[in-house]
Amino acid sequence: MKSRHKKLMVIVLALAGIGIAAALILNAFQSNLVFFFSPTQVANGEAPTNRAFRIGGLVEAGSLKRDAGGLTSHFVVTDTAKSMNVVYTGILPDLFKEGKGVVAEGRLGADGLFTATQVLAKHDENYMPPEAAHALEQAQKAQKSVVR
């Protein structure tokens, strides 16, 4: 075998190695690609029961209760069809707000209470000045009252 062919073999093997590594990584991510489960998916038993997982949805308006003097807060995560009670001890992110998106990582208790170890805020892709957001909100309210 000529040294030229040997080198070519090395390169081909290296490329094959990279390809296999990439395939393995992607395969490992397959289980992680589902970054969070919605409360409906959890209710349907799609979420794992034996390990920690993430749930995602909206923080139900009016559901946030903070314990007096403590860092523990209770809130409800909803996807409008189903909802889940969540308890979390720690500092909530700045964007955490009722009616806004949230992703919480933790375990689901037998009593249906989700004990979160990490809470992340999920925001949408809209960017506008506060006045525009306010005007939009007013317009939506007006439209709703017309429909009713």
């Binding site: 690609l33 589902v34 970054f35 969070f36 992703v103 992340l120 892709e125 960017y127 525009a132």
Partner: peptide, 23 residues
């Protein structure tokens, strides 16, 4: 394709941009 923490695209060819014009 997947549930991500990252938000969707603000600017794409298929819909009007969801950003104020000056931004």
């Amino acid at each position: 394709w997947w549930n991500t923490l990252h938000q969707g695209a603000s600017v794409s060819v298929t819909k009007a941009p969801s950003m104020a014009a000056i931004m």
